Simulated scan of single mutants.
Amino acid sequence: MKKITILGVSSLFLLATLFTSCNSIKNANNTQKGAGIGAGAGALIGAIIGNNTKLGTAGGALIGAAIGGGTGALIGNKMDKQARQIDQALPGADVERVGEGIRLVLNENAVRFDTNKSTLTAIAKANLDKLVPVFNEYADTDIEIFGYTDSTGKPEYNLTLSGQRAASVKSYLVSKGLANSRFKTTGEGIANPIATNDTPEGRSQNRRVEFAILANEKMVQDAKKEAGQ
């Protein structure tokens, strides 16, 4: 199993203070992941991180939702477990623990889209099937799906196409029994490429979807009770 990248909220607080570029924290403990900033600081950091091409919009959404304190640490523990299970279920995916949530990048190794297409291939469906049991086990999470395109074509067209890609993934997961209310989809178009658009291979990687997996209100309230808040 590959190592899961961890971007802890303690370092992100420093980022918000100094306005420096973000760095991934390896082997951070759960307190570093979940405790260190409150929701207000999280919103500020989210705005900064959201414009960073490394983490993209999904990472910004996760940091912006940070709660911090003992509640955040307890949520972080659950997200650690879920991230490991996702990594085991789908080794080809890129799994990152960001703040109190999980950023999941499904690129060409997991969910690949052909140029100008939003339909899921048989391989894409098979890989999404591997995620369904994990998402079912951790039912107290919300999932935001962000669709992306390469730079081919007009930006306006790509924005629409990327939204259709995110919607295709959501529709398939809902068809497998996951609650529709857990999902939110957004098209990001050509924003935040993860590879060069100058080669066919790079463009293929950019035709992707990303997930931001975060605690829903029930998980938050349960964690607050457990933390004695």
Rank of each mutant, 00 (worst) to 15 (best):
Lys3Gln: 09
Thr5Ser: 14
Val9Pro: 01
Val9Ser: 10
Phe13Asn: 11
Leu14Asn: 14
Ala16Gly: 13
Cys22Arg: 14
Asn23His: 13
Lys26Pro: 03
Gln32Leu: 06
Ile37Gly: 07
Ile37Phe: 07
Ala43Pro: 03
Leu44Asn: 07
Gly46Cys: 07
Ile49Tyr: 09
Ile49Glu: 03
Gly50Asn: 13
Lys54Tyr: 10
Lys54Met: 14
Thr57Glu: 15
Gly60Trp: 04
Ala61Phe: 08
Ile63Phe: 15
Gly64Pro: 02
Gly64Thr: 06
Ala66Thr: 15
Ile67Leu: 15
Gly68Asp: 13
Lys81Ile: 05
Asp87Arg: 01
Asp87Pro: 00
Gln88Asn: 11
Leu90Phe: 02
Leu90Pro: 01
Pro91Asn: 01
Gly92Gln: 00
Gly92Ile: 02
Ala93Leu: 05
Gly101Leu: 06
Ile102Phe: 02
Arg103Tyr: 02
Leu104Val: 05
Leu104Trp: 01
Asn107Asp: 14
Val111Trp: 00
Val111Met: 01
Val111Ala: 01
Val111Asp: 01
Leu120Gly: 00
Thr121Pro: 09
Ala124Asp: 10
Ala126Trp: 02
Asn127Leu: 09
Leu128Ser: 02
Lys130Met: 07
Val132Cys: 04
Val132Phe: 04
Val134Tyr: 05
Val134Arg: 03
Phe135His: 14
Asn136Ala: 11
Ala139Glu: 06
Asp140Pro: 07
Ile143Met: 03
Glu144Leu: 13
Ile145Trp: 03
Ile145Phe: 05
Ser151Phe: 08
Lys154Tyr: 10
Leu159Ala: 15
Thr160Asn: 13
Thr160Leu: 12
Thr160Cys: 12
Ser162Pro: 10
Gly163Phe: 03
Arg165Leu: 08
Ala166Thr: 10
Ser168Cys: 13
Val174His: 00
Ser175Lys: 14
Ser175Asp: 12
Ser181Met: 02
Lys184Tyr: 12
Thr185Arg: 00
Thr185Gln: 04
Gly187Ser: 05
Glu188Leu: 15
Gly189Leu: 08
Ala191Pro: 07
Asn192His: 12
Asn192Ser: 09
Pro193Val: 00
Pro193Trp: 00
Pro200Trp: 12
Glu201Arg: 07
Glu201Met: 10
Glu201Asn: 11
Gln205Thr: 08
Asn206Cys: 15
Glu210Gln: 07
Phe211Pro: 00
Ala212Ile: 04
Ala215Tyr: 10
Lys218Val: 15
Met219Phe: 15
Glu226Thr: 14
Gly228His: 08
Gly228Tyr: 14
Gln229Phe: 15
